[in-house]
Design a protein around this nucleic acid. Sequence first.
DNA 1: TCTACTTTCTCCACTCACAGGACAAAGAGA
DNA 2: TCTCTTTGTCCTGTGAGTGGAGAAAGTAGA
Lengths: 396, 396
Amino acid sequence: MRRMTARPANAHQARLLRLLRDDGPNSRAQLGDRVDLSRSKLAVEVERLLETGLVVADGLAASRGGRRSHNIRLAPALRFLGVDIGATSIDVAVTNAELEVLGHINQPMDVREGPVAVFEQVLSMAAKLKASGLAEGFDGAGIGVPGPVRFPEGVPVAPPIMPGWDGFPVREALSQDLGCPVMVDNDVNLMAMGEQHAGVARTVGDFLCVKIGTGIGCGIVVGGEVYRGTTGSAGDIGHIQAVPDGRPCACGNRGCLEAHFSGAALARDAEEAARQGLSQELAARLETAGSLSAVDVAAAAVAGDATALDLIREGGNRTGQVIAGLVSFFNPGLVVIGGGVTGLGHTLLAAIRTQVYRQSLPLATGNLPIVLGELGPTAGVIGAARLISDHLFSPA
Amino acid sequence: MRRMTARPANAHQARLLRLLRDDGPNSRAQLGDRVDLSRSKLAVEVERLLETGLVVADGLAASRGGRRSHNIRLAPALRFLGVDIGATSIDVAVTNAELEVLGHINQPMDVREGPVAVFEQVLSMAAKLKASGLAEGFDGAGIGVPGPVRFPEGVPVAPPIMPGWDGFPVREALSQDLGCPVMVDNDVNLMAMGEQHAGVARTVGDFLCVKIGTGIGCGIVVGGEVYRGTTGSAGDIGHIQAVPDGRPCACGNRGCLEAHFSGAALARDAEEAARQGLSQELAARLETAGSLSAVDVAAAAVAGDATALDLIREGGNRTGQVIAGLVSFFNPGLVVIGGGVTGLGHTLLAAIRTQVYRQSLPLATGNLPIVLGELGPTAGVIGAARLISDHLFSPA
DNA sequence: TCTACTTTCTCCACTCACAGGACAAAGAGA
DNA sequence: TCTCTTTGTCCTGTGAGTGGAGAAAGTAGA
């Protein structure tokens, strides 16, 4: 099957495509109410979109007291690929043009294996999704990588946890292999876009999205748009100093937030506590599994283990202190907490909230919700699909 | 004389007005090169602007090898009033339409006297500038106040250092008294706009402007636009925790940056050092003046006083640590340091730079200039004039 | 079943913004 | 005086877009 070749010819068409993506199928009349165009002009643009095949008119909607309207929807055969490359695993999903996830698979993988090995696996995962009949091909793909990206070119730059990726032309290479347009961004930014599109941040213009996984990062959304900074490293909060003269960090400094709290730090602390005999619960899990992860700590906490709860609380306090500073500075309308350690749940959230509400000024926190992400691991892949669809649904 | 009544009728006219403001007088041909309009269309819009009196054609420019061009410039009688209300003094300036400062006066005043007393003084200062023949009236005024502002309404909200100002309708009241349009903003944002318009930040899209005066604040510019946050308190970095369990702050917390370094904190520390006999230099000044200010510390530092230098260095270190965090988070293209303590000069700047370059990641700091503001006390008033001109030079 | 009223969609004529070229005005240089 | 350049003006063609008339297709009540 031939994939999407056309692009919207003007801003009106782009606007209509995004409207159909975000609000689903609609009649011409309803579209007209939203885009501030005369019905005649709108009809012309819809007609052109129908000609290109980007949208289809399928059937009539129920009458609302008059002539029944034609349902206009995005071409049902359109498929986007959303790829979220984490430090230790890969998520790949197919979506339709409305960014609904049709299929989603996750496989363990260490980014440090390098781009070649990683993309080999990504391609095989994409092939698996195709083979299952969810897609005959992809019209575009969004890729998230766990490090800073030179966004326009889609190339990782100086990624600390991704040796071997520096300067690798991700966008170009994948675009060739997949045979479709590709956009690349930081995984944290994609999580923010995902929560904005389909999660807790749907109605908020300015918000922060803190992702605590193997590392810690923060997606920044200003006026509905992801802010990436001058060199693409905005939101890199893992190396903000959280503890003066604290633990040594891989970056060469001491006391970085990431050194004191993150998936990796938590696992290490838990193992140490287990070895020191501070927690039978954790010790038992260490015995069984040979090593511990954030998931084990979460399970121990649910079981009521005091040491696990303490570790989570302390980490939450550290994180909360840093977030409190960011809240004072940025004055967001919402703070979303997500990433692998979301499993730590309410204990973590409570610690963060306590610190932020105590340390930031009332004017900034008065009406500030601090919540867990709603989408879990699908936030990243939905954000990835949204990234490429934003690109494709913009004037050529 | 009748003041400016007309406003640009469309986006083209607004664009042209801003171009004439920022780049000075220009011929039609040169304007045409910059605005991507055909010469015919441009001629029409210029003609309309001439009719409204917003711009004038005065004389012919020198030939560049062909027919001489008409000089198009903003109406020379246009006058903007820039007002910068600080914690302890007021700056008022008149500018022409190109935002060149024609007259500038400064008078001491304590904001805590309340809005009525303050604006009485502002009006008398404005009258003095008028009386000196610099203006026959004002076409617009920009006002900066040292606290958060609900921007669209021009009303201060919950200002910590301005009791009595909460909810006072600054914009409305001054607009009546001055008989011209008024816009109100945080003084820090205006400083950022000033440095952006005529200072060190002319070519930078994303930057931070840290103002260290009686308090500490930070102007945030994203894509050339001031970012104000959800409730208008963005950039309020004075109450970020700089020292765990540090000094008590007026806000009720401990260890706030502002409690450890700001004009007020520095003066207090210097007085204490003088009383403890740690510095003869400072003691002598305290003896003479009865109290110390940041200016005294600066003078002592210039004289080589070790205690004064230590105070500045330590304050710079604290500030630098906080800025380092903001740099990691925001990844700006430039950091401007300004405000009253700019007099502390290179010692302060060196301490801040050391901390930032040491603590932030190379990708964010690699190409990051950290510099002192170029405009000193005029940054605020120029920013204020720019605020109102941006408002007036936008489609009605 | 007929009539009155809605809603949706299409068609057409008119307006307006704008581009682009022809041309006039005004100067420089040979 | 002639040619070339630059600036500014005028005029016409084109395409975008509006707004209204009216056809198409429905509901609800008599």
